[in-house]
């Protein structure tokens, strides 16, 4: 049964994943071209000075990639399910609905994690081409909260889609957007001391979908 659910999710996600993969690579290619042209035009020292002393962030273009991936993955997975209340079919499978839902979320979450991981790798490779390990580490630390913002974006969208009452959909959407906004800061290493705390808070999202799903199943508004 799990294999069937995973296959179903894969069918829903695959084209969106391909598009998001293309967007991710295109954004990183743009950053690479921008860095290369700056090195050729002004010399590498100027760029190093800007990065290390002036603490400039050259890769702000990837800031919204994580939340965008979370949003798109959630929409791709749950718009087909919640339209015409198809999600109710899931609740009639010979599997506890909590498990089937967790399986769906795990597939979606894994896709987002893989895309964010790939984006982090691209960032490290791009920065590593022109900068030493200190600046690569600092770039990854700076970008980590942006990717962590994929968690509220993904789960917030799922919550809003699965929820039955329109006003609660709005509330979940606003709460998730509020949490995403917290992480969207383009200052170098600003979350160095508190990223773990934010990650712990975002871990609270893991069980949240069960309640709206329960209301969806029972038709409670």
């Amino acid at each position: 049964m799990y294999k069937a659910i995973i296959y179903k999710e894969w069918i829903k996600l695959r084209w969106f994943l391909l598009i998001m993969l293309g967007i991710t690579l295109a954004v990183h290619l743009k950053i690479f071209i921008m860095l290369r042209s700056a090195v050729v035009a002004n010399g590498a020292y100027q760029l190093w000075y800007m990065a290390a002393v002036r603490q400039s962030v050259f890769y702000g273009d990837i800031m919204w990639l994580g939340p965008f991936m979370g949003l798109v993955a959630a929409l791709a997975q749950f718009v087909p399910e919640t339209g015409k209340r198809r999600l109710r079919i899931l609740f009639h499978l010979p599997l506890p609905h909590n498990r089937s839902l967790a399986c769906m979320l795990a597939v979606g979450g894994l896709c987002v994690v893989l895309l964010c991981g790939l984006s982090t790798l691209c960032l490290a490779l791009t920065m590593g081409t022109y900068f030493p390990s200190q600046l690569v580490t600092s770039a990854v630390v700076t970008a980590s909260p942006w990717f962590l913002a994929a968690v509220p974006a993904y789960f917030g969208t799922v919550l809003a889609l699965v929820e039955t009452a329109w006003w609660r959909k709005g509330a979940f959407g606003l709460v998730a957007f509020g949490l995403v906004l917290l992480m969207m800061d383009g200052t170098l290493n600003i979350f160095e001391q508190s990223l773990g705390r934010y990650a712990l808070v975002f871990a609270l999202f893991l069980p949240t979908v069960l309640l709206p799903a329960h209301r969806f199943k029972r038709g409670i508004v």
């Binding site: 709460v175 509020g178 949240t208």
Partner: peptide
Amino acid sequence: MLKVSRIAILLLMTLVFAIYA
């Protein structure tokens, strides 16, 4: 599990309101 889910939602909402308000 529903109770856990509800408490998690409550804590997240409270956190956002306690930041922004």
